[in-house]
Amino acid sequence: DSLSVHQLAAQGEIAKLDEHICKDDSLLSKQDERGFTPLMWAAAFGEVATVTYLLEKGADPRVLARERESALSLASSGGYTDIVNTLLKHHVEINTYDWNGGTPLLYAVRGNHVKCVESLLGRGADLTMEADSGYSPMDLAVALGHKKVQQAIETHILNL
């Protein structure tokens, strides 16, 4: 009972989360000290059903945390393609950049998450946005030796 809505979201505890939110619906958009919402916590920990539940309750998927992290960048970094696709269907901004110059696509590439990369490219993610370190998604895939990601980017460019 002492868990915060953020912890409950991260753990996928939908029933307990629902109890809290039914009592106080402001908890749906409550940001923790770093600006993360329950939706961001659920997205970061791959809790697909919780993400869907929070969106159905009306959670705003476009909120950015203090350092401009988004639910989409967190899901992309973790390689949670189902969550990435769900968020994209809710028309989130696909090319947000954060303190790191990181975009969802750059995080998906960094994590070697091929399916995420394909989803993001299919939805029009910008291949030219570089991280603060100067790496474009392609540079990063090459530098890290992520050959399948590299191939996915090349296939996408050829299809343009």
Partner: peptide
């Protein structure tokens, strides 16, 4: 029983310790 708590979400640095290309 002790509660297991998740640590705050974080995103990795996009650097490799190499000069940017």
């Amino acid at each position: 029983t002790q509660l297991s708590l998740y640590t705050s979400p974080s995103l990795p640095n996009i650097t490799l310790g190499l000069p940017a290309t």
